[in-house]
Nucleic acid binder design. Structure first.
Lengths: 198, 198
DNA sequence: GTTCCCGTCGAACGATCCTTCGATATTGTG
DNA sequence: CACAATATCGAAGGATCGTTCGACGGGAAC
């Protein structure tokens, strides 16, 4: 993508903002009004320039932001960095973290309390990202609301005939046992990711 | 937001998909064509219904998706769950993880190799999310490209007068030392988050 | 100093858009 | 059974949209 002029950058930013806020492409006249341009022809030329430089794609009468300029496409995961190249060069990109995929439609997160899972590298304050589900396989990492308080707990799930066991990953803690129908155990779902922010 | 009919749900999904893909709201005729509807009037009625139920907002002649249905608004972080309430009830929401904020404009991620940071709960395969910067404070968690290979490394940064030390969090490893001008040490940036996917 | 790119204007045209109106069929609720 | 909500059609009118054309000025490059 060739470099944009200051004006083009401004206009591109305005377009991206409008899409983020309102979920639609601004009309030429809207763009014009925002920058004090009275003629749609002026805007038209800017959009053509943006398309020529690869910042926008054109399909019929419609423009859409090129992938490279979108802000919601997740962040790149860099692999080995080619010698001498700038770190963020495109050839180093392994994949992209798709935030939207990570936390699907109904996902939510809970904050981890205590350190019963430290041996698996899950620490107090971490966020467990949970995909709600009613059934999980043995050995899976899950979140459940347990006890009178219905406090959120991250554990490994193990079920035998009539006992459900929630196992910690810390020798100092003991597994929690529940009968399969115990109302004090409410399964929230499967942990699909752990996030720790600094 | 009142419950949507199956048809309304389908149409809303199509709208959200179009916005995600092309960054613009689909026209009535596009929506119609996608579902085999020949009259824009039909689509108009559906959109009105969606707006009446709060799934879309209307501003003049334009619609935009309500916050509640947007897929890019981050996922909720649940705190203590009020007794007897459904787990995902709104009153339990502590905050929201704003993916877009988490990985700012120029952020990227690198995969963690080896287990030199296990004592801080950072394990092989985790993704370190990096905010590029040229200067960091002592003690901060950073990512640097080191050695001939320029391999990405996560460590704690400590700088004295003329030595930069990258400290692991694992007794089995030793700190790496560099002179302040060593070209074999290239600082990538500060670690703002750790992400582990399952 | 001429040439080129960038940014701008205004007017007019045709394409596309959303809305409105009247009409029909199905489904579920009271 | 009657009534409301849902789901659809087709036609027509008026609003809005993007496009095109011709023109102007400033700055940078040659």
């Amino acid at each position: 993508m060739r470099t944009l002029t200051k004006r083009q950058r401004e206009i591109l930013d305005f377009i991206l903002e409008t899409i983020e806020k309102y979920g639609r492409f601004p009309s030429y006249r809207e763009i014009g009004a925002h920058f004090g341009l009275t003629s749609p022809a002026t805007v038209s030329q800017h959009l053509e320039a943006l398309a020529a430089k690869g910042a926008l794609h054109r399909r019929g009468r419609h423009y859409s932001p090129a992938e490279a300029v979108r802000r919601d496409q997740g962040i790149p995961v860099l692999g080995r960095v080619a010698a001498g190249s700038p770190i963020t060069a495109v050839e180093n990109i392994e994949e992209r973290i798709q935030w939207n995929r990570l936390g699907g439609e109904h996902c939510f997160a809970v904050r981890v309390l205590g350190n019963s899972m430290v041996d698996e590298g899950i620490r107090e304050g971490d966020l467990a990202i949970v995909e709600p589900c009613d059934e999980v396989r043995n050995g899976e990492l899950i979140v459940a609301y347990v006890g009178e308080d219905q406090e959120a707990t991250v554990k490994r799930y193990h079920r035998s005939r009539d006992v459900i066991e929630l196992r910690p990953a810390n020798r100092a803690y003991r597994p929690m046992r529940f009968s399969t129908a115990d109302p004090h155990l409410r399964l929230a779902g499967r942990v699909v990711a752990i996030l720790r922010r600094f």
